[in-house]
Design a protein around this nucleic acid. Sequence first.
DNA 1: CGGCGCGTGAAACTCTCGGTGAAGAGCGAC
DNA 2: GTCGCTCTTCACCGAGAGTTTCACGCGCCG
Lengths: 139, 139
Amino acid sequence: MKLSVKSDYAARAVLELARRYASGKAQRVEDLAEAQGVPANYLVQILIELKAQRIVKSVRGKEGGYLLAKIPAEITLGDVLRCVHGEIFDTAALSDSNCPPELRGAWEKLRQSVNATADNITFQNLLDEGESKEKMYYI
Amino acid sequence: MKLSVKSDYAARAVLELARRYASGKAQRVEDLAEAQGVPANYLVQILIELKAQRIVKSVRGKEGGYLLAKIPAEITLGDVLRCVHGEIFDTAALSDSNCPPELRGAWEKLRQSVNATADNITFQNLLDEGESKEKMYYI
DNA sequence: CGGCGCGTGAAACTCTCGGTGAAGAGCGAC
DNA sequence: GTCGCTCTTCACCGAGAGTTTCACGCGCCG
């Protein structure tokens, strides 16, 4: 069960936008892409999906780019992952009538567990975590 | 993030073996495969991997087939999934040095969450669950 | 020894993912 | 109005993993 690179890119992009959220300025796709070593043309597709789910918003023209659509505390990792994948934890078994009901229950437990964990991580959390780690240097 | 069909097949096979564990008889691959609508030739490969991890064992020749290598209570869903996939929750990000440390922490939380849940489900649990559901019919 | 069923490896096939390129559309500056 | 900047959209391709099937070798039991 391997998380796609796409989800990783999406999470990085949103994190980067969260970091620059205070500036209020729109961020260009190319800048975001370069900041994380992601192919710009690919990142575009991801951002469009994120926009469709109102996680980010875009501004066109000169000085255009992308912004978070909400404050970082209101965006969870689960939101981002679901936006890119649909259900985070999926398996053919859940839509297979041959699947024994006991197993179905087990898959659903796993799904619920992942969802709960992912929904409990907001990007504000991640920002705080990053800052507190920085402060460590001063001690 | 989609669980492969292979994991599902593996789980079904082990569950089926657990159900028949009391008989003490070796179960033929074809019987197991037919009982769940799984391609027999594919199931063989899965069973070989399960055998390598000492989750099942095999008997050759006439009256041969597969058996659980331990009692159902000692086999967890996590064991089976890891046997088929290596780490259950994997992502390229964890081996990418460009990955922001905050995100790395988040991925590890997800991984830990999945592992904990999967390791907490034994096949004995699943058997019990199935039986208690059967009993419901008598009430 | 002969048949049954496991053991193993490889070929073929499908499908998604990751990535690229180019043409189109809105916004601001001059 | 026109030009340049940047997002928007769509079409496509190559690689690789996952799934499936086939063929043949090997060990065990009667």
